[in-house]
Design a protein around this nucleic acid. Structure first.
Lengths: 144, 144
DNA sequence: ATGGTAAATGCAATATTATTGCATTTACAT
DNA sequence: ATGTAAATGCAATAATATTGCATTTACCAT
């Protein structure tokens, strides 16, 4: 998961309406190479001659997060980005501090290890988020 | 790191003035059992008869994050909390979804593992954040 | 195809959170 | 004590987020 088409499937199968605004937001997320805020999304669509109320975008993003079609990330101001990961409750990102490029991944071993540590503190963890902050391959060579 | 006293040391040794507002914010962070927002901090201090301008609190928190005396966390709206961890560039939390209780920890093995995965994608990561979201020992027994 | 209906969106108002420039105050070195 | 850079306060403004309600739309049954 989740390209544009499979995201649409998720909406349909879970009984949510496939509306024009939802399709537009899905498109933007699918195309984005870095985290985007609700207002970023609005701007992008504006440029394509498509006006969406920001409230609508907020509500759509809430839904998408609920359905695991999108996530909020801490880096770059906690913006949102579509998920590429499959595993339930495991949402891991690496973010380039230079260009904002973002990759999502999932890793069960990491979750297991974190669960063990949590147990030592009496915690039972259900969701795992992580963000590695650094430089992507492109930006490593460059000098700024 | 970092109780109230050692945080004060960090400020002194790095040449930052030890002001009344900074001491107050440090106190609140040190006493907080869950992530607190800038305005949370303002309210707590208000109740103690101490008024701080919110701008000041924002600037103080910026500084504290820069000095690794505080961190921003994603859960509960990206609020801030003092750090308890030592390792450079490794900031891991577990957060109780019920009561907001938060524990910080650091773990080198996790960082190494994440670095390896990052390498496969061409990323070189410098900072690691993670949040495990679940239930603390207190809240596990309770039914809501 | 067409109409009924719940769901989704738009809009307006408002709340919350965050930032900036500049005047004033304060911690700290001398 | 006092000069000075650093820190804070204040006022204005920007950016982000939420709510209630009227209107529109997707999708179902016909």
């Amino acid at each position: 998961m989740f390209d544009f088409q499979s995201s649409i499937q998720v909406l349909r199968t879970k009984g949510y309406k496939l509306t024009r605004p939802r399709k537009r937001v899905l498109e933007v997320l699918a195309q984005a190479q870095k985290p985007v805020s609700p207002y970023d999304i609005q701007k992008v669509l504006q440029q394509r001659g498509e006006h969406l109320n920001h409230v609508t975008i907020y509500r759509i993003l809430d839904l998408f997060c609920l359905l695991n079609l999108a996530h909020k990330v801490l880096s770059f101001g906690g913006f949102v980005k579509c998920t590429l990961g499959e595993e339930e409750g495991c949402h891991r990102f690496m973010v380039c501090r230079q260009c904002g490029a973002l990759r999502e991944f999932a890793d069960k071993a990491l979750c297991d290890e974190e669960n063990e540590i949590a147990q030592d503190f009496g915690f039972r963890t259900e969701q795992h988020f992580s963000e590695g902050f650094g430089l992507c391959s492109n930006c490593q060579g460059q000098i700024f």
